[in-house]
Simulated scan of single mutants.
Amino acid sequence: MICQLLQLKKNTSLKIAIMKYAAIIFFLFISVVNYGQRPSAKNNGKFFDKNGNRMLYGGESNQHFTINNLDLKEEQFHYGLGRELFPALLEPDFETVTDADWKDEDRFLLAYKGDDIKAYSVRDLTRHEVVNDVIDGEPIFAAYCILADLGAIYKRTYSDKVFTFALSGYTYFDPKIWDGLDGFILWDRETESLWWPLIDKAVSGDLKGVRLQKLEDIYWEDTTWKVIKEKYPNAQVLISGQNFERPIRWKSYKDVSDIVKKYGND
Rank of each mutant, 00 (worst) to 15 (best):
4 Q>P: 00
14 L>R: 13
15 K>R: 15
16 I>S: 14
22 A>K: 13
23 A>F: 06
25 I>G: 02
26 F>I: 05
28 L>N: 04
29 F>C: 09
30 I>Q: 10
30 I>A: 01
34 N>H: 13
39 P>S: 05
40 S>N: 10
42 K>Q: 15
44 N>W: 10
47 F>H: 09
55 M>L: 01
59 G>K: 01
67 I>W: 00
67 I>N: 01
68 N>R: 09
72 L>T: 11
74 E>W: 06
77 F>S: 08
83 R>Y: 02
90 L>T: 05
96 T>L: 09
101 D>Q: 12
106 D>C: 09
111 A>E: 07
113 K>C: 03
113 K>Y: 05
127 R>N: 03
132 N>H: 02
133 D>Q: 04
133 D>W: 03
133 D>G: 05
137 G>P: 13
137 G>L: 10
138 E>M: 09
141 F>M: 12
147 L>Y: 03
153 I>Y: 06
155 K>A: 12
164 T>G: 10
164 T>K: 04
169 G>R: 01
175 P>C: 01
179 D>T: 08
180 G>F: 06
181 L>Q: 15
189 R>S: 08
189 R>E: 14
191 T>L: 07
191 T>Q: 09
195 W>Y: 15
199 I>K: 15
201 K>Y: 05
210 V>K: 12
211 R>M: 11
212 L>Y: 13
213 Q>S: 06
214 K>S: 08
215 L>W: 06
221 E>A: 07
222 D>N: 14
225 W>Q: 04
226 K>L: 04
235 A>T: 04
236 Q>F: 07
243 N>K: 04
247 P>I: 06
248 I>R: 06
248 I>Y: 07
252 S>V: 11
258 D>K: 14
258 D>Q: 13
262 K>D: 02
264 G>H: 12
266 D>G: 11
